[in-house]
Each structure stands twice: as C-alpha cells, then as structure tokens.
Design a protein around this nucleic acid. Sequence first.
RNA 1: CGAGCCGGCCGGGCGGCCGCGUCGGGUUGCUCCAGAACGGAGCGCCCGCCGAGGAAGGUCCGGGCUCCACAGGGCAGGGUGGUGGGUAACGCCCACCCGGGGUGACCCGCGGGACAGUGCCACAGAAAGCAGACCGCCCAAGGCCUCCAGAACGUGCCGGAGACCGUGGGUAAGGGUGAAACGGCGGUGUAAGAGACCACCAGCGCCCGAGGUGACUCGGGCGGCUCGGCAAACCCCACCCGGAGCAAGAUCAGACAGGAAGCGCUGGAGGGCUGCUCGCCCGAGCUUCCGGGUAGAUCGCUGGAGGCUGUCGGCAACGGCAGCCCGAGAUGGAUGGCCGCCGGUGCGGCGUCGGGCGGUCCAGCCGUCCGGCCCGUCCACAGAACCCGGCCUACAGGCCGACUCGUCCG
Length: 115
Amino acid sequence: MLPAKARLRRQADFADTIRQGRRSGRPALVVSLLTADGAHAVADPARVGFVVGRRVGGAVVRNRIRRRLRHLLADRLGLLPSGSRVVVRVLPGAERLPASELSRELDTLLTRVVR
RNA sequence: CGAGCCGGCCGGGCGGCCGCGUCGGGUUGCUCCAGAACGGAGCGCCCGCCGAGGAAGGUCCGGGCUCCACAGGGCAGGGUGGUGGGUAACGCCCACCCGGGGUGACCCGCGGGACAGUGCCACAGAAAGCAGACCGCCCAAGGCCUCCAGAACGUGCCGGAGACCGUGGGUAAGGGUGAAACGGCGGUGUAAGAGACCACCAGCGCCCGAGGUGACUCGGGCGGCUCGGCAAACCCCACCCGGAGCAAGAUCAGACAGGAAGCGCUGGAGGGCUGCUCGCCCGAGCUUCCGGGUAGAUCGCUGGAGGCUGUCGGCAACGGCAGCCCGAGAUGGAUGGCCGCCGGUGCGGCGUCGGGCGGUCCAGCCGUCCGGCCCGUCCACAGAACCCGGCCUACAGGCCGACUCGUCCG
C-alpha cells in the first residue's frame, strides 16, 4: 500500500494534475503526471491518486482495482520525479485484467509519461 | 432408504514474500518548544494488540443522540388495525383465536366497521341491490286452423279435444350467465308455484349456562323464516405521530468588499424548521437583485438497549441475577496485493486405468455406459462512514438438529 505521504488528498491536486499534466492512455487506464515546478516542492516525494468511476462497477469492484493499482504504484514510486503528482484513471474493463497484464499496462503508460 | 417440512450455523482454510490504518509502548535518529534538570510536540524507526458483513446493501419503519427559547390546544395531514404478551420503541417478535390450504410435519392471510352516509360491482347475463321478470310454466276470455262426434253427402251451427297468435293475469320451481343471483334437501300444498306451511341442516339476531385475562369456543332455547360483495373507493371508529438530521452540532484557524431597491424599528417588519388557526414568546432588522470570499483542522467518534457462559422465571418472544471478555473507527476514505498448496462442485478433455453391455468365431479393434486418477476451467451476493432494534432484497456451496409421510427389516 501507499504510505500516507504519497497520496493525493485534495480536490485541487486532482484537478491540476488532470488538467495541466501530461497524459497518456490505454483502453484500460489513463495516467496523468504533473511535474513539480517550484523549487519548494523538490524535496517532497511523488504523490499518487486514483479516479475510479461508477461505471467500472460496484463498490467492491472499485475498491479492489484501486487496491491492486495502489500496490503496483507503491513499488514504482522511486521511478517518479520527486514532487510530481500522478492521477490514474480507471476505465471499465480494467478490473478483468490479470495481474501480469495490469502491471504491464501501467508500466508502459508510466514510461511514456515520465519520458 | 426415499420424499418433504421447520429451525439454527458457516460462508473458504493454510503457508511464503511485500504492504496499510487506529491505539499502546520503546527510541542512543532528525527538527522545534522549554531550558539547571526532569521533560513536551511533530516527522521517522522498532515492538505489540486489533482491524468489514450476514446481509456492512435498499433506506422501508422504530429508537438513542444533537439542534430548533417552551413543545401547548384545535383543524388539516400521515400511520397502524383479531386478542394477549415482549420491548427503549416499532409497521418487529412470540403465543393464541378466526378463515383458507395440505394425508401430515406445517404453511398462507394489509384479519376493525357495509342497518352513519356517499359511491362502485367490468364482461356475460332478463336482472348486480331492491325490487323487478327474458325464456319457460299455469289460468282466463278472444281470434284463426285442424281433428272427433251428432247413423250418409255438401255447407254452416252447437259440443269436445288440440296446435298457433296476440291480450290480461298468476308464478319464481327449472334454463342459461357470472367471482357472486334473494338459503339447501325432502315433504305438504297448488291451475302452476312459492318458507305459503312442516321436519332437518346452514346462516342471522336475541337470551341462558359453562370455559378462557381476552379474541373466542362449546352446549341449550327462542324468533322471524333469509337481509350479496367491495372499505388496497371516499368515509366512520379506536390508538399513535412536533420538525430537521452527524454535511446534526461544538470549538479553533483562515478569507473577503461591498453596492442597489423595497418593507419595518415597540400601535412593531420578520421569526419560533410540513400547512392553517388560536394561545404563548423572541424581536431590530428582514426580503430580492448584482458582485466577492471560504469550503481547512480538532471534537462529536465509538463501551453499547454490547457479547459469551451459567442459573432462575416464562409454552415462547424475553426478562432477572452471577461470572468472564473488549470485538473497526477510515475521511480521495485503512482492513490488502502477488504467488503456492489444500478443499469443494459442475463442465470440458476422446488423456489414462479398471469394469459392464453390444458388434465380430476368438484375440485384437470399434461403439456406448459407470467408477478412479490426471490436466484445464469455475467457487456466490457483496465493502463499515454517528450508533442500535427490525423489515425487505441479493446470495455458489456446505454443516447440524427437531419433526412428518411412504416403503422395507427387526
């Protein structure tokens, strides 16, 4: 799981990241990344948030996909630029992917976005 | 053994690696406060405890809790509806009564009132509520026709019988329709019939006796002989209900910018959280439009109508007493992720082994069925958000117990 410091908590963080960040998508996921601009944020670790719409499924399904992704992101926090913010949007269908495919999808999107 | 019925319970298990949240403890890590010292706070790190459900769900009832100054009367509105009990309370639960279903264990019932009133009863049917009568049955007089007879023939007339036609009257037994048709059956009776009368039965009303806290049941007598259903139509009766909801509410921090119009300042605008009204009370601001700002932290927040065991009372729901235990508190929202093994159950596999049957004289081979093993696949419904008591809905599979019916054995 993600430690508490690495989570996006505020509505404004989500809105900024999705609107201004670099975005890359696949049929299952969409990843947005916003790198830190000011010098004040360089010391902070990267922070991650998830958007799972109601169309994905019921509460149980949405919780599960979010947990799986959170575990995957926790292993990859070191790859992200420090101070950056990441939002992962989950599209319907992602919950049916097996673990290996889900991690592969996430990796391609992350490398594309980080560049 | 088979079929059924009722109740209770579980709803994956074990292991490896890596993680998350609250709380408690430690800290020779870093920063800050305080500084003589003990120390305190935050961020880390280490250790330990605990960490989703039977429905956490739908949000349909009932409460606790919080705020609305007090929570008063009437009307309106809403809800409930056999009886007795349980409970904080309920629309819930238990027991019983009544009605219906089942051979039975059991199951089902939104179960007050239709002489307080208004209204409705589709289709069919003559007629759907208070009286009436479509077909039919019967009687009377009339018209017309046929037949018989008056010893023969023709015509007419008188008499008798019958069919048909319309008229007047008597009937409600029969027909047919319907969810429901003015009691059922037998007899007396009659022109035909009819509770017109009689016996029995059903139903209604009244009285008496017995049992029960009661709903009600059982028994006896009398009466007039019979009077439909729908209140989940309005309605009537009895009882219950103030409103909003944890985004309740409280504290702290922080931000901003006001302007215009209208009404009013104690003979009073406006307000007291569903409407109207009476009463009581608060009361100097209120309403609309334009423009601007904030939506952070802490508390509420989990120990409670709490669980488990024993015992006593009670048919039971449940309650009393005693002992033991502490079982989530997140806030972009923890309670998990990846993998392996085991366990289930159904499906597929022409994979493999064994057996039965059929084809061929046999072996072999082929077809089909059953069982074991292996491989693959599948293993439900569903995620706490202030907390409880219920209801309803969803749900793969499994376990336990009581009882009923049928068959067989002793």
